[in-house]
Amino acid sequence: MALVTPDNHGLRLWTRYAVLLLVAVIFIFPLLFMAMSSLKPDQQLLSDTNSLRAFLPVGDISFQNYSDAFDRAPIGVFVMNSVLITGATVLLTLFVCSLAAFSFVFLDWAGRGLIFSVLLATLIVPYESIFIPMLLMVSQLPWIGFEGLEWGWLNTYRVQIIPFIADGLTIFLFVQYFKDLPRELIEASRVEGASWWMIYRRVVMPLSGPVIATAAILKFLFMYNQYLWPLMVVQAEEIRPVMVGLGYFTDQLNVPWGEVMAYLTIITIPVLAFYLSLQRMFIASVASTGVKG
């Protein structure tokens, strides 16, 4: 039988910390490279890539790239658009998909097994493969707005939000989580006379923090990183999101790498802030469901 002595306990601890440190370095260094490079002129940035200087704030350091990036593109507009589009989609997705999952798990209706299977099948269809039919559809859809009935959703916020509200993955996550909730809670609530809406709102959702965090983070990342869809459906600069804005920093021949890094640093901040705010619940959910982000 192996004995845990103070010596090998310390060794194991140090080994564990060394592995964790190595993993942390692997994940942190790209971010560090991005942030440090955003402070350097292009020529120094490129020459520093040959050494560890790439990760250090050394040489000719300034915020000039940030100033130039703001001159080149309306970054504030792009970030606000992405936050608005992503935030709205995340909130609506959580509401719609959790309701759908609630129905699949707790309500008894004909054909739910079949429909859930079809829903699962949609997980293997990449969005990019259906973008063209989606484009043709949204270009013909009606909308009733302040100016009455109009046709076509192109060049609007709604065309960047509504098609992505309902998705199979989020419903699947909620279904898996709801299945593990104690049925006794639901049955007791029914006996007490609670409506299904009240059970959803007062019993199920308050217990679903981890899956809400997981679904929110996954959806946030998907929406924030959208490039092809907004490129296809949005022409007006004032409603462009951040990823399309990245195109402002490349032309046919030259790429101002310092400005690119400054732009990437700026647009990474909302992602990090959102992830860090939900990190604890996300980890709890991953630990309990095995879902990987």
Binding site: I132, L231, A236, V244, F249, D251
Partner: peptide, 23 residues
């Protein structure tokens, strides 16, 4: 005038042509 980043311009025109929304 509507301006596009050069890297995305040709794709945007192709998509607009599909949707019947060329300028």
């Amino acid at each position: 005038l509507e301006t596009f980043p050069q890297g995305a311009y040709n794709d945007a025109v192709g998509a607009a042509a599909l949707a019947g929304e060329l300028p």
